[in-house]
Amino acid sequence: MSFKTILSAAMALAIGAAVATSAQAQAPKASPLVTGEWLEKNANDPKVRIVEVSVEPGLFERGHIPNAQNIVWHTDLVDTVRRDVATQEKFQDLVRKLGIEKDSTVVLYGDNNNWFAAWGAWIFKSYGFENVKLLDGGRKKWEAEKRPFDTRVASVAPSKVTVSAFDKKLRANLAAVSDVVANKSNVTIVDIRSADEYSGKIFAPAGSQELAVRAGHIPGALNVPWGRAVNEDGTIKSVDELKKLYAAAGIDGSKPIIVYCRIGERSSHTWFVLSQILGYDVRNYDGSWTEYGNTVGLPVINVAGTVWGGK
C-alpha cells in the first residue's frame, strides 16, 4: 500500500515538475530519491554508483545491494584526529577508489532510516557532487520488498575525479549559529532531536557516548524531531505532507534554515529532506549540541532545568 503511495507521489512530482518528456526516465533525475525498483533496474549502469553507509558493522559484508560499495562512516568520512569531516584530499582518494566521476549518479543507502547515508549525502554534496540521491527507505525497505542482496565485491575501475573544495554554503559553524542567537541574522534554527533532549529533560539518548555538559537547546530553535519526516516503512513522506509538517512548526522556506542535533548526523536527515526534497536553503550545523552545549558562555534554554552532575 505504501509502495503505491510513493509511486503516486513520485508520479505527482514528475507530472508537477514536468514538461511532457518521458516521466519514467525523468523521475530519478528530478527527485533526490530513488525507489528500489529503479535501483534494481539501474544497478549495472556504469553511470550509477551505489554506496552503502550503515551504522552497524558487518551489515554490508553479510549482504548488500548488488554492485554497492561500502563506506565506513567513522573512518572514511571524518578526520579521525581533529573533529571535522574528511579533508578534501582524503575524500578525493575515497571517491576515486569508488570509481565515482563528477557526472556519476551516486545513490546512497543504509540502515537506521538512512541516517548515515543522509550524512554521506551531505558530504558528497558539500564536495561538489551534483547527482546525489538516497534510496528511499534504505536497507529496511529494500529487504521488505524482498529484493536481492549480494556478498560479492563490486569490481569498479578507479576514477581520476578531482573533488572541489568543501562548499561552506551547506554547513553552519558555531559563529554562524551564535550570530543567529544574537539576532544578527534572520535564520530559523531547527532542533531535530527528541522532545526530551530539546526540553533538557535528558542530556542525550541512552547509550550515547558523546555528551554536552549542559542540557536544553539553542535559544529560538524550533523542535521538529527528524523521525516525523519518515513513514512507518522507512520511506520519506510526500512533498505535501512534508510541507504541511514543517509549516505547522513555522518552517516554510521563506528564511534560511540551520539544522542541528547532537553530533550532526541525524540532522543530516532533516537537512536532506528540507534542502533536497523541499528545495529550502538549509545548512547543517555538524558541531551540533555537543559543540554548542559545551561552549562556555553561550545562552541556553533549559526548560526542564536538569543540572549537570546534580541530583
Partner: peptide, 15 residues
C-alpha cells in the same frame, strides 16, 4: 576472501 579481497589494507574483517 569475499568480504575483504585485500587483507593488507589495515582494515579488519567485521565482528
Amino acid at each position: 576472501g569475499s568480504w575483504l579481497p585485500d587483507a593488507s589494507t589495515g582494515r579488519l574483517p567485521p565482528d
